[in-house]
Nucleic acid binder design. Sequence first.
DNA 1: TGGGTCATGTAACCTGTTACATGATTAG
DNA 2: CTAATCATGTAACAGGTTACATGACCCA
Lengths: 183, 183
Amino acid sequence: MSLKHGLLGILNYGSMTGYDLNKVFEDSLSFFWKAQQSQIYRELASLERLGLISSELVVQDGRPNKKVYRITGEGRKELDSWLRSGLSDDLFIKRSGFLMKVFFSGELRPEETARMLRAYLARCEAELKAMEQIPAVIEAHRLPGDRPEKALCWRMTALYGLDYYRMQISWAKKAIAELEAGQ
Amino acid sequence: MSLKHGLLGILNYGSMTGYDLNKVFEDSLSFFWKAQQSQIYRELASLERLGLISSELVVQDGRPNKKVYRITGEGRKELDSWLRSGLSDDLFIKRSGFLMKVFFSGELRPEETARMLRAYLARCEAELKAMEQIPAVIEAHRLPGDRPEKALCWRMTALYGLDYYRMQISWAKKAIAELEAGQ
DNA sequence: TGGGTCATGTAACCTGTTACATGATTAG
DNA sequence: CTAATCATGTAACAGGTTACATGACCCA
């Protein structure tokens, strides 16, 4: 459900094509919501059927024609009621293939488990490094007309990302130390 | 994919019915993998078609007959190769409806956002409290024949859960403070 | 001349969710 | 007597993943 609301949320900031939406998702939301391009097109079609967005074909020459989507009044109402509906039930981690593997790694030799954890640690350190620039990017993206709350909320999710990776890193270090102590 | 491997992993510790597997999932894995009962039955059927598990009908009187699933040699091979295959690509949070909402909450008044965050904080504190007993439960579940690595890996995932909720709590507190400062 | 960007989508498949359906036993 | 537990599933739908398909323009 949230993909639909994410699309509405972005279109609420400005009309754009499926292609653009895909890029915005990759650039800004992919940390907490990874969407496939094909899925975005499908959801756009569905949102249009529901009357929450409308589209206009823009003929271009030199490059392919494009379909620009715009949020409708109905769409704004839906977005608003979603935002105000409080917490939903889908809060926490639902599926982690990684933790599943850790859970069953008692079958492996401790060195093998440790090797996997070290690889995980390296990945987390790389992700953290990549995220560290985001708060500055948000600051830069700020437009004069924007409500200050917007930047605050964006920064809150970015800080979440930083905290998240820092936690992964400290957990992984502890786990590796425990494995090495156990041998 | 990981649901299949989770089922194999549990059946590797002992044969059981779909009903039992569902309970094990709820009791032990639901923190990082929430599976529906109907999905478990479907995956069991699929694993059996693949020859990774086999089943035996046990006729009971007084209660419904049951189908006891057992991992096959093929299944053990598959489980083992999954465990040794290192990190997969599905590492991090993929979808968080909660963060999606936070991201777009710039449209709300700060008090409304703060109310949502306080509700989140309360949920996290409750989850943390519930998880705090788990390391002791794992210790209690230990059987004489078990490899010590098994308990270690279980404890690592439980510690992950604790760290995870503690991180959520500290992030939420910071975010609420920022919102209140911004007003 | 080859790869990246712009721009659209479809098709098939897999996985997850929700709801329905049955029926006996046992514990409070 | 009523709710929980034991035990099986199916059906329909929603959502996510992977792969395919097209085609022009621009830059190196």
